[in-house]
Amino acid sequence: MEFLSDIASLINSTLRISTPLVFAAMAGIFAERSGVIDFSLEGKMLMAAFVAAVGSYYLGNPWLGLLLAIIVCVCLSMLHGFASVTHKGDQVVSCVAINILIIGLTTALAAAWFGQAGLTPTLNEDQRFLEIHLPFADALRDIPVIGTLYSDILSGHYVFVYLAYLSVPLVFWIVFKTSFGLRLRAVGENPSAVDTAGINVFTMRYKALAINGVLIAFAGAHLSTAVNANFFREMSAGRGYLALAAMIFGKWHPKTALIACLLFGFTDALQIRLQGVELPAIGEIPVQLIQALPYILTVVLLAGFVGKAIAPNAIGQPYIKER
């Protein structure tokens, strides 16, 4: 029985840890499917975390904080678009600039507003998202298997966790079942084909970036107003890059990107649990080795099981109409 509850709690943390990765990977899919590289997922996530925490602190409502984060992230995406779509600048350079800007900006603004470099005040219960307990979760807990599944795995998450996993089928549907999705994929593969079909390439890319901004805002808000109760310096901790990797390993496809995100989340959840565990015959494994486990596992799995990732054909290339 204890074994079962261990598994349940492992799955539970996997779902939680993967949440920002899923949002960011879905955001990345929109940008990159349209042909715009987005390394700035990391910076935007950090900015969203900061804005959500500050917004929610002042306005007293985490939803308003989220709304502000969405607005700011869409603006940042537009900035990326302005530099790399309209002015045909190098997309990677534009992203790196945004990332550096935001690391400095969040730290400086926190210092100016709250007197602490890179730290915002702790949010009270009204100012942050709380775990949602699904109906009858307590009553059903004692039923074997179904109880564990429902009460320990499905119930008790932040709203973002549910939204993240709901976003995956939604993204899939948009990208593959709608005319917008068809145009989105086409513009990342062969923008000239889109242009000669009478569709504005630039508008398409801006639309994709706007959606990208909305999605990434959820990832940031999850970090600072749900799992944590404040913003702290560089709290995104490379999740934006990890999500980008997941998206690439997932071949720019929502379903496989989800699997890659869950894999990252799972290995991370596992390594926390394995720390300090004594193995028979071997003894305690050094913490450093355990912490490296997710990355080792990732490399092994990806090298062994994922074929060659083929990027959208026109990715990274600004569209130039006239010679």
């Binding site: 079942k177 709608t178 005319s179 917008f180 068809l182 145009r183 994929r185 086409a186 593969e189 062969n190 000239s192 084909a193 889109v194 242009d195 000669t196 079909a197 009478g198 569709i199 054909n313």
Partner: peptide, 29 residues
Amino acid sequence: GMVHQHFMLVENFTVLENIILGFEGETVF
């Protein structure tokens, strides 16, 4: 209509997808 020297086709799309691109006529297929 114009057939360009370098074809304006999306290589990993089907023939149908390439032809309706931009003239789908509906939001959801």
